[in-house]
Amino acid sequence: MNRDLSLLIGILVALLAVLLLGVFHSTLALDPGQRLASLALERLPESGVSNPVTAVLLNYRAYDTLLELAVLLAALLGIWSLGPARPGFQPAGPALAAMVDWVVPLAILTGGYLLWVGGHAPGGAFQAGALLGAAGVILRLAGNAGAGLPSEAWQRWLIVLGAGVFSLIGLLLALTGYGFLSYPPGQAKWLILLIETAATIAIGVTLAAAYVGGRPQMAQPPRSPLAPMADPEAKR
């Protein structure tokens, strides 16, 4: 890398940062700030959940969350379009295998707990989904090439589950006259829980599948001539 050029860019970036800091400071100084906070907290009892962040994510600004699931889906579809997954790692040794046997169920359980607790405390679908995904990652690291995921057809249904349930509920509500993603009073809690459950599964599967890094193999992956070098088993 050219030293002068990076120095020049460094100076430019530093100037930009100083300017941004100045602007940020002046804004903070002059504006004590009436945010959406009071409004969001005021309407919290109607939202069906008692955790304000979950209320924003799944009620006030549920539309953003729906699209975020779509972003996740797009990333996975992009990854799948690049070709089949590579073979996984060598099977875990006994110590790791024993640990995996413990950690994976624990992660799934904790995920369930996080999902449930999200209604009134920090937690929710994304945290839970991330744990499920992590369970998949651990499985793959321990030698399970498919990260414990089901067949491709099942995976396809599971990864669209979150956005599917979300948008179908939204459209159903629009059809019944409440408006897109406007929960009827009193029903918000259960609808949110339903959506969150579906989203958790979808996020978990999507993250794990993304870690696998390619289209799921149907059955026994055909051994390509290039495969052995990536397959440590072949070396022994």
Binding site: A37, A40, V53, V56, L57, R61, V71
Partner: peptide
Amino acid sequence: TPPDPVPHALVLTGIVV
């Protein structure tokens, strides 16, 4: 005053993206 939950939610969305 309690913190504004909206930016928190935005950040969560942003992280997933």
